[in-house]
Write a protein that binds this DNA or RNA. Structure first.
Lengths: 232, 232
DNA sequence: ACGGAACCTTGATAAACATCAAGCAGGGGG
DNA sequence: CCCCCTGCTTGATGTTTATCAAGGTTCCGT
């Protein structure tokens, strides 16, 4: 790959500390590709062939069982996915599709494993990344087991707001039904949850959400760093 | 520490490949200790001081929010816990207490991080372990989001059975209320779920469960390696 | 502009799950 | 041995969430 995207990939925590030669070798083996929206990238149960980096666009990771489907995670730039399966040389636990037209970097799994074996700094960066991913999922699980749907929505709105500048004005980064599934509820329920939050200063106009009484919303949501802070 | 437990700790996947000198150094800094039942070991939100290894007994990891509590994981011999927090030098996301009188090995966090920096083989073993932990939580999350309480119970019974020899005769390794919380339901609901499973050949006598129609139970449970197999 | 297709919302209903309140059974300590 | 405590179960009830069905809006392509 040759492009203006290379420096920002190099700057990712996962890659920034690895030796130049190893990084170049990884990138030489990698593919940079643009995919249309709604394209099936990976399917749960299949062996892990590539480590993916989202350069542009958005990828939806989801899982299916008994004809039910649930969104597990939305990966936005510059996130990576399927690192654990690649390292363990195991099958994917989640399926993945592009949510919109997306530019992705595909690094062959075997090259990642080779770099991991040869480059100590890379191995340490991987540990850091994996530990972070692990803690994120644990937080999601606490969210799911300890909160009701309305509480989960309230907290996710507060998180989105602070992510988007804390101005009380949110632009939802994806469909409402995607958000619903991500939060573990049905689209109908999300609609009703938004209505429930109206008295707490939550105004909805399509994908634009307005928070006019953050204090009140926080009293309901009771956010805690141990569930809601991305960095903790 | 000096004891008959050392060889089995050394044999753990996490430690077996590290250099002898580094392992000895880790063990010299570590404490082997026996704790009574129901003892608070760690508290969510506190900085990670030790990596724990359960040598004997059982430790319950749980989380709390808004005066609700849920069991996240039961760690039995020879499992480790709180690895991610130790590596990231972060606060615990879960609290932990002994479920019964337990023998634990406590390795100071700073020593673990030092060994991780100095011993490439250890770093790789950590990656393997972390990736495995990550995938376990992802499976739990799929279980929670895609299945009902009865389905979760049915699958966990099948898993426990195969873990205990597949003879259709299970001894529950902990209280029913603990199992309930682990599966994300109330004790009352677990009781009712057992009743729901009676027509599928599930007999309950205290902590002893008998499966008399595994085929029928499996038709209901629809187990899949992508959620229910520990090793995948 | 029109038709159609997503997407979202709303309402009605049903299923799943939690809560509250007793009651029962078994085991450990006095 | 008996008592009491703890854990479990059961029943009644209420809340939360899903499902089914229908209507409305927006946006796109023809």
């Amino acid at each position: 790959m040759r492009s203006t995207d290379l420096p920002q990939v190099r700057a990712l925590p996962l890659f920034e500390s690895m030796a130049e030669a190893n990084f170049e070798q990884l990138m030489q083996a990698a593919y940079l590709q643009i995919f249309p929206a709604q394209l099936e990238l990976i399917k749960e149960g299949e062996p892990a062939d590539f480590l993916y980096v989202v350069i542009d666009g958005c990828v939806e990771l989801y899982a299916r069982w008994n004809s039910h489907e649930t969104v597990m995670e939305m990966v936005r730039p510059l996130g990576t996915f399927i690192l654990a399966a690649v390292l363990k040389d195991a099958v994917y636990l989640k399926s993945g599709r592009t949510n919109q037209r997306s530019k992705l970097l595909l690094i062959p799994a075997e090259n990642v494993r080779e770099a991991f074996r040869n480059d100590g700094a890379f191995a340490r960066a991987i540990v850091e990344e994996l530990a972070g991913c692990y803690r994120e999922v644990v937080k999601q699980q606490k969210d799911l087991k300890l909160r009701t749907a309305v509480e989960r929505l309230a907290n996710s709105l507060l998180a989105l707001d602070s992510e988007q500048g804390g101005r009380g004005c949110i632009e939802l980064p994806y469909d409402k039904r995607t958000l619903a599934s991500l939060l573990g509820m049905t689209p109908e329920n999300l609609s009703r949850a938004f209505n429930t939050l109206k008295p707490y200063g939550v105004g909805v106009d399509g994908a634009r959400i307005r928070l006019t009484d953050t204090a009140s919303l926080e009293r309901l949501a009771k956010p805690t760093p141990l569930i809601d802070d991305a960095t903790v």
